[in-house]
Structures are given as C-alpha cells and as structure tokens.
C-alpha cells in the first residue's frame, strides 16, 4: 500500500502524451497544478477548481477526467493525454481546422478541455446526432461562442470521417 503523509512530497511518474514524465507532488496537489506547474504543460487550463466548467479536462487512462478534481498522486503510472498531446495527433487536424472555420473558439481558454472531450467522444461515437453532441458539450462552459461553432465543427468532422470510411 502506498501512503503519503501530509506535507511530504513524492515523485510521481506517468506517461503524458506518450512520453515518460515525472515530477514532485504532495498528497493534496491537484493533477491540474501538477501538469501545469510541475510538468510545465500549460495547455491545460483551470477555470473553476470544482469540477464544473470542464476547462481542465484531460484523458486519464482512457477516461475523461476533470484534472482539478483529481489528485496528482492518483496519476502514478497512468497514461494521460492533454491538449499538447492532441496537438501532435495529425488525425485531429481536421477537427482543429473545423473549429477555426466555424468560429468554435474565441478566447480559447476553455478549448483544450473541449478538444479532449470531443476527440474522446468522436472515437466512441463516430457518427453522433446533434443532440448527442450538444449533450457531450454540456459538460463544458464557454462564455464566448454560444457553442454553435463547436457543434457544427464536430458534426462536420464526424460526417466527413464517416463518409470517408464508407467510401
């Protein structure tokens, strides 16, 4: 059993975006703070620190996680994907371009978490309905765009991908 007393720091090693990373964390260090200030992956943003806004969403061992509601020590040995990892994924370039074309982002602060959710969602559900996309996006707050551009971008990419696969 791993035990980490209060105030003590431990080394946390995990695979982030396909690369081994390690850094120090206390028991209470939030995964969001660990990714940003210890691993210097500033692409993950913090919007509320109570698990509602979704800006800090990352993929943790294949599941979506609010990194502000996750402890860094929970990530020991885990595989994490952040926006920086998604950026390296050529397969997501159509999604990024569609976001840009459809005005799916303005200030872009909420965008990294939304890309994590959208890519995870499209992998599980390649041909979603608009209602499903809206339901998925309802786990994120964006105050700039009114979400319409995101919905259009995700549906367009899904349609193109599905049509491409059917040809």
């Amino acid at each position: 059993m791993m035990r980490l007393p209060p105030g003590q720091r431990t080394r946390v090693t995990c695979t982030v975006n396909g690369q081994a990373h390690s850094g120090f964390a206390e028991s209470r260090t939030l995964l969001s703070d660990f990714l940003r200030h210890e691993l210097h992956l500033y692409g993950t943003h913090v919007g509320c620190e109570h698990g509602v806004c979704g800006a800090c969403t990352v993929v943790l061992d294949g599941r979506l996680a609010r990194s502000c509601a996750t402890l860094a020590v929970q990530a020991e040995g885990a595989e994490i994907t952040t926006v920086e990892g998604l950026a390296a994924d050529e397969g997501l370039e159509p999604l990024r371009q569609a976001f840009s074309r459809h005005g799916a982002l303005q200030c872009g602060f909420c965008t990294p978490g939304i890309l994590a959710s959208a890519s995870h969602f499209l992998a599980a559900r390649p041909d979603p309905t608009e209602a499903e996309v809206r339901d998925m996006l309802s786990g994120h707050l964006c105050r700039c765009t009114g979400y319409e551009g995101m919905v259009r971008a995700i549906l367009e990419v899904a349609r193109e991908t599905t049509e491409g696969a059917n040809q």
Binding site: R36, L41, Y42, G43, T44, H45, V46, T82, V83, E84, L86, A87, R96, F99, S100, R101, L105, C107, G108, F109, T111, P112, L115
Partner: peptide, 19 residues
C-alpha cells in the same frame, strides 16, 4: 479569414497570465 489566433489556442501553445 480564419483567425490567426487559433493555431496557438488549439494546440495549447497560447500563454495566459497564470502560465
């Protein structure tokens, strides 16, 4: 014209005050 701001924002490369 697609926004010049977007590439950095979509790849996690835009730097905000807390960064």
């Amino acid at each position: 014209v697609p926004r010049l701001e977007d590439a950095a924002l979509l790849t996690g490369n835009a730097r905000f005050i807390d960064d």
